[in-house]
Design a protein around this nucleic acid. Structure first.
Lengths: 227, 227, 227, 227
DNA sequence: GATGAATGAGGATTCATTCAT
DNA sequence: AATGAATGAATCCTCATTCAT
């Protein structure tokens, strides 16, 4: 694209010459990295502007303020994951009735998150901050997913293993395992021979967590319920 | 102050100040709450001082600076958990050879964390920040624990289920489940009929996570390893 | 319109832009309102541009900078009043020797100002700022007016009432009464049963201030001059 | 303490040693000058801090923000004038029934304002800004004053000269004359041989405006009322 | 031990202005 | 003529820290 020195190139090619192919997008990239790395309070607009290579006031040509930039980052980051989850759970349009495969979902999500390592951290920070920005984004998905999960579990042999009240905790546990795999990588680093964020580490973890989910859906253990 | 050793102290005697049995401790309490709620960058010394009911400069009579206060909070908060874990894993001094009961450990830790809800959040924030303050505290414990866990697993029927490289991931998964139970409570709140931080919620979750651990230590599933 | 008599003009023809018969004029209108309402420092180019419905840089197509815009507003606003005053004082060209009628002048000015309520405020702001922009505009008029006024007074029965040094103060007092009627309307509002800016209020005030001028030109009071 | 070994000087005299006799007061002085000279929007905290000789953040040790500083300036500046007016109108406690002397009041107010030339400008700016800060301060005084003025006028020979609805306009006219004397001094400067803010100018103006008030209270002119 | 006051450094945001399109 | 984007300079304000009392 950028080459082809032969053609006389009379087209003005204004797009290619633009100082910034898309400044707003580059700002979002930089902000995602910083918000994910340092959190909202720990990120300064100077950090972001420097990373983009522009001056601070220029940020305001694209986002009205820091909070709006943060929201935009959150939304842009989370939407694809939710879409991924929705697809995994509800099945593709082509074969919508196909039962979802939890292991495949876990693997898909982890592989996606591995490509955007700031994202799990962003989510974790957001949850620590109260998750008020997250809730509206998730509400569109989480509740239906939860219901669908519940429905599915009720038609599965292992269903009698868990009480329905336990399902939310199970879902959140899985959520925490996956998100936590990325956010605690600093710690895992020193424990695991396999780097947790390496391709191999992701692969191994995805397999492991998948097995874990599978195990959870199997027959109940013998221990009685004390409560 | 330091002088006048003769007089029997007829000076008014700082009555107003005596209200605080230990100002440093109250500062730590306030700081733990704020650091846990807002993170290091999101917490101001004004927040802490206001919470304690003193002026900001007074903080410097007890801690040299914000970073040191943070470290102190972290240490004070984490030490008991580590002690708890050590005890659970290595057994009590009274009966040190007793094999550890993972379910009991999970329950004990969760019950302890439930009493100090800022703590899991503090840990999560710290991990997101890189965990550099946490590493030295954990290194004293995590590695031995890991080794002991490894040793234990090797003598357990379910051991052949996991590869030794997977153990760190499993340990971290459990860690994330437990910590995450508290840090994602905002989200769980809207999903679970049982409030996750209520006594009942803690109890149910502890039971659930214990079962989960138990399941992990049982016979392997049939799925082959793809890698 | 004046161009392209040949082609039938299928090009979109800047319809959207034609809405403004004279953008510069609309800018002046908006700026007069804002400068009068908030003063020079309190008015931003964004205020003006928003009011006009254009973007800020477009302002620079019509005025070189904020200061020039302000000067233009001031000049455009004040010129008619000066013309009005000139006419009132020097008499119309048709009957130039006719003696001026102070009451009529006051009334005329007030009625004119009532139509442009930003103007008195603009003048007041400008005076507070030092009046440096105002001075050159007024110098063409004020001094001759003052002289003419002086001359007139000397041929008037009440003249011996005031010393010539007092005349400037008297003139300024009248000026302040008239301008102040508009700038203090916020305050008068709560005192007067008649809204000061209503047609009725203007009428009543003009009458009142006219009487006042008349009274000033009548026989002197008996009180001696102490200085 | 460590010094002055001779004098008995048992009072610790800490006040005299303070770096600043009263920083808050000096800030108010500087702010009054600047707010009066440039208005609220035109005054920067740097202006004020520089004038005081401190750094900007130090301002915040005494006033929570710019708006509060402004309010404090306004209140401190206006209170004495109101007190002065109250005393003039209601009479001294020693002889409260004594009828007020408008000329004396005008003179007293003008002499007071001459000592604080920022004050009339401050008031004028505030009125232009809407007078929202002024209203509560004046409401305690203006209305009773107005009523008292009304009452007084009704017992005065000249009363039949003005309608009661005209009184507010008359009061405001007098107000504008006095305030305007100071705020339009820039303009008067070039007209009057006597500098309007000089002691002589104040004296002359006070006399003049007093006479004016007196004239207003005398017999009506012959001109009929047209409305 | 406690605090009022002061401050360097910085943080988000605004503003007037410029320039390429 | 209009404007999106960029920016130097400033503005208000906060923060952690110091110091004299």
């Amino acid at each position: 694209m950028t080459e082809a020195p032969i053609s006389t190139q009379d087209t003005p090619q204004p797009a290619a010459r633009r100082r910034s192919p898309d400044t707003a997008e580059r700002i979002l990239d930089a902000a995602e990295e910083y918000f994910g790395r340092k959190g909202y309070a720990g990120t300064t607009l100077r950090d972001v502007a420097d990373q983009v290579g522009i001056r601070i006031p220029s940020l305001y040509n694209h986002f009205p303020n820091k909070a709006a930039l943060y929201s935009a980052v959150l939304e842009r980051g989370i939407s694809p994951v939710l879409a991924l989850l929705s697809r995994s759970i509800q099945g593709d349009e082509t074969e919508p009735t196909e039962a979802m495969d939890p292991k495949a979902t876990v693997r898909a999500v982890m592989q996606w998150l591995a490509l955007r390592p700031s994202l799990p951290r962003l989510i974790q920070y957001e949850l620590l901050a109260g998750g008020e920005q997250l809730a509206p984004l998730l509400s569109d998905w989480l509740e239906p997913a939860m219901n669908q999960g519940l429905a599915m579990m009720e038609t599965t042999p292992g269903v009698e293993r868990w009480r329905s009240q336990e399902i939310p905790f199970l879902v959140m546990a899985l959520f925490n395992i996956v998100i936590g795999h990325f956010t605690t990588s600093a710690l895992t680093q020193s424990l695991s021979p396999t780097p947790p964020l390496s391709e191999e580490g992701i692969e191994a973890a995805a397999h492991l967590y998948g097995q874990l989910v599978e195990a959870l859906l199997q027959d109940a253990p013998t221990s009685p319920r004390p409560y």
